[in-house]
Each structure stands twice: as C-alpha cells, then as structure tokens.
Nucleic acid binder design. Structure first.
Lengths: 122, 122
DNA sequence: TGCTTTCCCTTAACATGTTAATGATTGCTA
DNA sequence: TAGCAATCATTAACATGTTAAGGGAAAGCA
C-alpha cells in the first residue's frame, strides 16, 4: 500500500477515507452497512470515518425516511474532485504492479490470493 | 491473518505482541531498532508495545552499559511459554495455507509477493 | 396493544499505525 | 573543550482496528 499512501499524503485524506470515496464514486449512495462491507471497514470504524468526512464536506449523510434506523451516505462534489484528481495516478499504481509481474503472473497472483480468502472476492 | 487472530484471542495478547515474542524467541535478546525491524513495527509502536508487555512480564528491557541510548529487549519464561503453548497451532495455520494451495502454488505465491515488495524478504 | 426480539447504528475502551516533535546520548570537530 | 551534528528512543496527536456494550427503531407475536 506504500505507493497509495504516498499518493494520499498530498491530499489530506487517509487510505480508508480514499476507499470510502472510491466505493461511493463507483456505486453511488449506499447505506452504511453496504458501504462498510465494500470499503472493507468495520462498522464502528465507518461511523467515525463518516463523521470526519462529513466534517470535511466530502460526503453527506441522510436518514432513510421509511426506516429511520437506516442511513445513506453519498459523495459530494468536493469528494468526487479528490477521486478525479488522483484517478490517473491511482491507475498507474495498479498498472505498475501489472507491469512488474507481467500480465500472466499478475492474474496468477489474484487467483492465488482469492483461493486463500474466498470471502473477499470483488 | 484471521486464523492467527482467532488463535491469539485465547491468549490475551495481540498480533503485534505475538510477533515480538516470536522474533525474540527465534533471535534471542535484541536492540529495539532491530526488533522493530524484524517484527515489522515502527519504533513508536514498539515503544508502547514494549511498555505493555513489560507490564505483563513477557519481556525484560535493559539499557546498554556502554551506549546508554540503546536498549535490549529479551523474552521472559512467561513470554516463551506463550510461544510454546501456541507453536503447534501456529504451524498448523501455515500448513493449512500450504495445503489449500498445494506446495507448488504456495511457493509461487511467496515468489510473486516477494517480487512486488523486494524489501520484505525474510 | 404491549412485549420481546431483531436490526441498524453508535459509543466506549483499549491497542496499534503514522508522522512530527522532543529528549537524551554520543561523536565529531573547530 | 565547547558546540554542533548524528543517533537512539520516547512522546504527542490524530486516525484506525477490534470487541463489547448500549440506544433507538422496526417487526413479530401473544
């Protein structure tokens, strides 16, 4: 994760906050349980992270009108801007991994890791 | 790491404390810089962890007579007991990984990961 | 309807990761 | 030898991981 962290150190957000933004950017607004799952966060962590990010204006949090236990979290334009500004560099990092290993070995790695942790398939 | 954490939840120590004990058990007393490196911990983390573990009587910490900036940390009998009590189960977890993937694929995985992070060779 | 259960989420408490600043020694050098 | 740089380690501040407990709302049922 070191290259990712280097990238993020310039943006003022953390690795976990980056994951939250990416998931929201890809899937649109999500309830907190789904968001925590897709961002690989435990719910207590997400609660805190969401509070921080709401404070920074990166996300909005709204309560479900029907089921008032539920909440939905959505990305704001400011949050989306962080994703956009770093999209190139982010893609480059993955491309680097692929280049270092070569296409075949890269796929092999994903396969082997997947076999060790069947629950983590994306 | 999930299987390791399950194992440790019974012992009252954390994953990082486990790594510290293992390194000390394998290499004998070490200075804190070397210990932090081998246990994959940053120095500030090691400082705190060492304080905790000293409180539990798992390690001892002594200052170098010659260079009084330096410290040496050693495992105590109580600490070694934790290693011994869990050695079987620990070996079994690695063996499980090897079994799931098969010998060849297991070696391949170690190789691929090593190529992505050349600094982390053991 | 009233009660219990279940669900969704938050709080709390403790341990660690991470970066920057600070201490404490030692070593070098003018 | 006084002063400064380098080294080893700790402290501080903030963010997250992890487990357990709590709080509010909905659902099921007598």
């Amino acid at each position: 994760m070191a290259p990712i962290r280097d990238m993020l150190s310039d943006t003022g957000i953390t690795e976990q906050q980056w994951r939250v933004l990416r998931v929201l950017s890809e899937h649109g607004p999500l309830d907190t349980t789904t968001l925590a799952d897709r961002a690989s966060l435990l719910h207590p962590s997400l609660t805190r992270i969401a509070t921080t990010m709401r404070g920074k204006g990166l996300i909005t949090q709204t309560r479900d009108k029907v089921d008032r236990r539920r909440q939905f979290i959505a990305i704001t334009p400011d949050g989306q801007k962080i994703i956009d500004d770093n999209a190139d560099q982010s893609a480059r990092i993955v491309a680097d991994f692929r280049r270092i290993l070569g296409e075949d070995d890269f796929e092999t790695l994903l396969d082997l890791l997947g076999r060790l942790d069947p629950g983590a398939q994306d």
